[in-house]
């Protein structure tokens, strides 16, 4: 697999949100608007890229039996860094994402890539994999956020298209499941045809 394929697989073919179904908690929890989805996705990407690089650097030092706790410690430290940076420089986004920032630690996507990719591949490949998967995750969250914002608030990235309240259910929790389900069905239909 060349590096280009390694990078682009995260968008559709192995999309973490729509195909691998990893990191569902932030996917369903924060995508009430496109901006929230984008912010969450980029924060996760930052953690994912850094954790992939660090883990692939020190993979030969970590004893096999304690590799999961070791990965988690690395990821948790990185999340703390991202969280503090976000609190300092993007306080409004930090406020709207709230609890979901510390929860990046337990995002299956990050641990999954560490276990499945970074612990077996070189630093450069792991970086490309982390960037591709992270941006694919960002893409998925932004699409979901856009759909929910458009239907639930008649707005795109905060710009109101039509006056009024929108179909509120799409901003609420059931709307997250419904929108995700229909997007996944749509993507599966395309993949089947292709």
């Amino acid at each position: 697999m060349n590096q280009l394929q390694n990078f682009t697989k995260g968008f559709i073919k192995e999309s973490p949100t729509f195909v691998l179904m990893l990191g569902m908690c932030p996917t369903l929890g924060v995508t009430t608007s496109a901006v929230n989805g984008l912010g969450m996705g980029l924060a996760t990407t930052a953690v994912l890229v850094l954790s992939n690089i660090i883990i692939s650097c020190i993979k030969s030092l970590i004893p096999d039996k304690v590799r999961i706790p070791a990965f988690i410690v690395i990821i948790a430290s990185l999340v703390t860094v991202v969280q503090m940076c976000m609190e300092a420089y993007l306080p409004s986004l930090y406020a709207s994402l709230g609890l979901f920032i510390p929860l990046i630690v337990v995002n299956c996507l990050i641990l999954g890539r560490a276990e499945a990719f970074a612990s077996k591949n070189g630093v450069w490949s792991s970086f490309v994999d982390g960037a591709g998967m992270g941006l694919g995750f960002t893409f998925g969250l932004t699409v979901l956020g856009m759909v929910r914002e458009l239907l639930g608030n008649y707005a795109v990235f905060g710009h109101k298209l039509v006056q009024g309240d929108g179909i509120l259910v799409f901003v609420l929790a059931p709307g997250a499941f419904l929108a995700l389900g229909f997007i996944v069905a749509f993507i599966n239909a395309i993949r089947k045809k292709a």
């Binding site: 309240d165 179909i167 509120l168 259910v169 609420l172 059931p174």
Partner: peptide, 9 residues
Amino acid sequence: VSLLISFPQ
């Protein structure tokens, strides 16, 4: 129920 949640007014 979807309508009730979506269009409460």
